[in-house]
């Protein structure tokens, strides 16, 4: 005999909402968990991302994802890199900046002392040079007042302080000027890749895009790590914390549903079919997982700038919420087959 009832979707949604929001006790525990887990996991992810950011920045300063393109033979004086091709590497997706570096002579200045190395660098590598000023390396002792002008070999220019540069761009103890327009070739090209970029996948593209005179160029990553920290971060189990939180929420809700089989009996013995009862239960968990996703989204809005990939995190939050509902529906499925009169006794 097929059982049927007259529950409308609206009445079932009302019933679910009342069960979730107008009650205390068990459902409050789920709602509390949804808020804490939703926001807590996102906050934890923000904290984890912050630590990851710091380590990536430290690796960057040590030369990770910095590629120096130069001659494969240090004694080859004929080797030169075409400036335009080097600066054009910035057009490649995954390249943050690229440009040629020329080692000029050492200079003597009143402000920075004697024998200070002077380099000429592309503006595509150090955009601060576009202002026409000279850059003083971050480790160079001396003034860095833009209103102050210094004279280098008869050329007068104002000086600003450069940011600390990563290994491979060893300019922190130098004065840096813009490469003159007439220079078309240089012995060295330095490229900085995005910190999430996998170097190995981009090297062939860089190699094919660079034009040289003389021998084949050598592309060398200044700091090569044994394991890719980005891949490690992405593969870490903590990335799945939100999914786990969703599953735990579902598990908690399933346990509480079975613990409250007397309430299930109240529905079933009132003429509610097992199917409608399941819909009421699942709609309740849609609301709970909605709270979970809302808490996660609010945390994302507040902590977004501190999270590496907020859009991806939002997607994971929604997936975790859906996983919650799906896992719950699977977990309580046996209730469909329970005899209502037996449920009434399972108090």
């Amino acid at each position: 005999m097929v059982r049927r009832d007259g529950w409308t979707l609206l009445a079932m949604a009302r019933e679910s909402a009342l069960n979730v929001f107008r009650t205390s006790g068990r459902m409050s525990l789920i709602i509390f968990y949804a808020v804490v887990a939703g926001s807590g996991v996102v906050a934890y992810e923000a904290q984890r991302t912050a630590v990851f950011d710091q380590s990536l920045e430290a690796y960057r300063m040590a030369g990770r994802n910095i590629i120096v393109i130069s001659s494969s033979d240090p004694d080859d004086t004929q080797f030169e890199i075409d400036r335009v091709s080097c600066e054009g590497l910035t057009d490649i997706s995954g390249v943050v900046r690229a440009g040629v570096v020329l080692d000029l002579r050492s200079v003597n200045t009143v402000e920075y002392g004697a024998n200070v190395p002077l380099h000429a660098v592309s503006a595509s590598l150090m955009p601060e040079l576009r202002s026409g000023q000279i850059l003083a390396g971050s480790a160079l002792a001396g003034p860095a007042d833009p209103r102050r002008r210094i004279s280098i070999s008869g050329t007068v220019a104002s000086v600003i302080r450069a940011r600390a540069q990563p290994a491979g761009l060893d300019l922190d103890s130098s004065l840096v000027a813009l490469v003159p327009p007439a220079v078309q070739f240089a012995p060295r090209c330095v490229v900085e890749l995005d910190r999430f970029q996998n170097v190995a996948t981009l090297l062939p593209l860089l190699e094919s895009a660079i034009a040289t005179r003389g021998r084949m160029p050598q592309l060398q990553e200044v700091l090569r790590l044994r394991q890719d920290p980005v891949a490690q971060f992405r593969a870490s189990p903590e990335r799945r914390a939100l999914w786990m939180a969703g599953l735990v929420g579902a598990l908690l809700a399933v346990v509480l549903t079975f613990a409250g089989s007397s309430e299930s009996a109240a529905y079933r013995l009132s003429g509610t079919t097992s199917r409608s009862h399941l819909v009421i239960l699942v709609l309740g968990q849609v609301l709970c997982s909605g709270v979970f996703m809302f808490a996660g989204t609010v945390a994302l809005l507040l902590l977004g700038p501190r999270i590496a990939t907020p859009a991806a995190q939002l997607l994971v939050t929604v997936q975790a919420g859906m996983l919650w509902v799906f896992a719950y529906a699977v977990g309580v499925f046996p209730l469909l087959f329970a005899d209502p009169s037996s449920l009434a006794k399972d108090r």
Partner: peptide, 22 residues
């Protein structure tokens, strides 16, 4: 049934309304 099969956090009226809603 024998005993207290009811939605304990809901009102008596809510509990009885289950039947006509169903």
């Amino acid at each position: 049934p024998q005993g207290a099969n009811a939605l304990s956090r809901r009102t008596a009226l809510d509990n009885v309304m289950l039947a006509p809603l169903a």
